[in-house]
């Protein structure tokens, strides 16, 4: 991380802000009025900033929890996402954040308890029904945990161990990640309302496209540990990346999953092919015009850029059918419609 920390005036007093600043005693501190002054201007280059992103500590004022996109769910009716952070320390070439934000700097909103208050409020709006809150939509949930301590506070809130604010019983949490920073989770008793979901890709794809992330092997190891410790785990095969050797790569991945994990004890599995909204795609190819994966994924379906429809279907079909060999249909939540392409549609 860069030697610069921008600190919003409104965030200065937060104990988390102070803690983070103390941890980075060598960093230059720049006071700012609003994080948007540094984060939003045009004439910034995401690709360059990824080489050495700065940290911005800010206070969030609204939109603490937002409705999740339609296909972003694991069976719940009420789905919301929240982001205590914008951007990610990893650098997956397909990441939609590089198309969404002007800046690759890491913004951390340090008024954590405001997130929890809104989660409580939103859960009460649907009392009696499960409400899912997804973390890791605009960032990786755990990757910067040693710096932010957000998930630690979040687990205390969901488990009721913080004493102050306690999550309502109908609030459910998904922590989506590629990170192996699970020390805090392993120290904590498993929380029944919480799922730790790992994004997985075949080793070669992770190696070539998911820059700076823990290897597939390390992610599987983290999943093993969490499962053994009693945590509910989820698997997210999203995005599927087209390849000449697609079936070999993904076939091997599903094999590895079955060998390493107790497949009867997996909370949920989801999958989806690579897709980006057109405006994001346009921005991303300006940043990486010579990236081969964007050279083959350039088909426009209703404003979403991805693979041609037939190719998408065949990728989804292969994966859905493979997954349904080891996961019961009630735990399978594809992000795209697979009802017409799996071999026994009645089972889903």
């Amino acid at each position: 991380m860069s030697g610069t920390i921008y600190v919003e005036d409104a965030a200065t007093d937060s104990p988390y802000t102070q803690h983070i600043i103390k941890r980075h005693s060598n960093a230059g501190i720049v006071s700012i009025d609003r994080y948007t002054e540094v984060f939003n201007p045009k004439a910034q280059n995401f690709r360059l900033q990824k080489k050495n992103p700065a940290l911005i500590l800010a206070k969030k004022h609204k939109n603490f929890v937002l409705p999740a996109p339609q296909d972003y769910n694991i069976g719940g009716k009420h789905n919301y996402y929240f982001s205590h952070m914008m951007n990610c320390i990893y650098d997956c070439r397909y990441c939609f954040l590089q198309g969404m934000y002007q800046s690759a700097n890491h913004v951390v909103f340090t008024n954590y308890s405001d997130f929890f208050e809104k989660i409580t409020e939103t859960s009460h709006q649907h009392s009696g029904e499960p409400v899912w809150f997804f973390s890791g939509y605009d960032c990786d949930s755990l990757a910067l945990e040693p710096v932010t301590g957000f998930m630690h506070a979040c687990l205390d809130y969901f488990s009721g161990s913080s004493g102050k604010l306690v999550a309502p019983p109908n609030a459910y949490l998904e922590i989506r990640t590629k990170s192996t920073q699970i020390r805090n989770l392993l120290r904590h008793d498993p929380i029944p309302n919480c799922v730790i979901a790992y994004s997985l890709s075949p080793h070669n794809i992770a190696d070539q496209l998911e820059h700076k992330t823990p290897s597939l092997e390390k992610r599987l190891l983290a999943l093993e540990k969490l499962q053994t410790a009693g945590w509910k785990i989820g698997l997210r095969f999203d995005p599927l990346i087209a390849a000449e050797n697609f079936e070999q790569l993904y076939g091997e991945l599903f094999e590895q999953v079955q060998q390493r994990l107790d497949t009867n004890n997996i909370h949920s599995v989801s999958l989806g092919t690579f897709r980006l909204p057109k405006p994001f795609y346009k921005k991303v190819i300006k940043l990486y015009p010579d990236e081969p994966m964007f050279a083959v994924a350039s088909h426009d379906t209703d404003g979403m850029i991805g693979y041609p429809v037939e190719q998408e279907s065949s990728m989804l079909s292969f994966c859905a059918n493979s997954i349904l060999n080891f996961i019961s249909p009630d735990r399978f939540y594809p992000c795209q419609d697979v009802s017409t392409i799996i071999q026994c549609p009645t089972t889903v």
Binding site: T4, Y6, V30, I32, V38, P41, Q44, L48, Q49, N52
Partner: peptide, 9 residues
């Protein structure tokens, strides 16, 4: 106000 990005070390 402008904030030149301090990306270069």
């Amino acid at each position: 106000r402008w904030y030149p990005q301090l990306t270069a070390t």
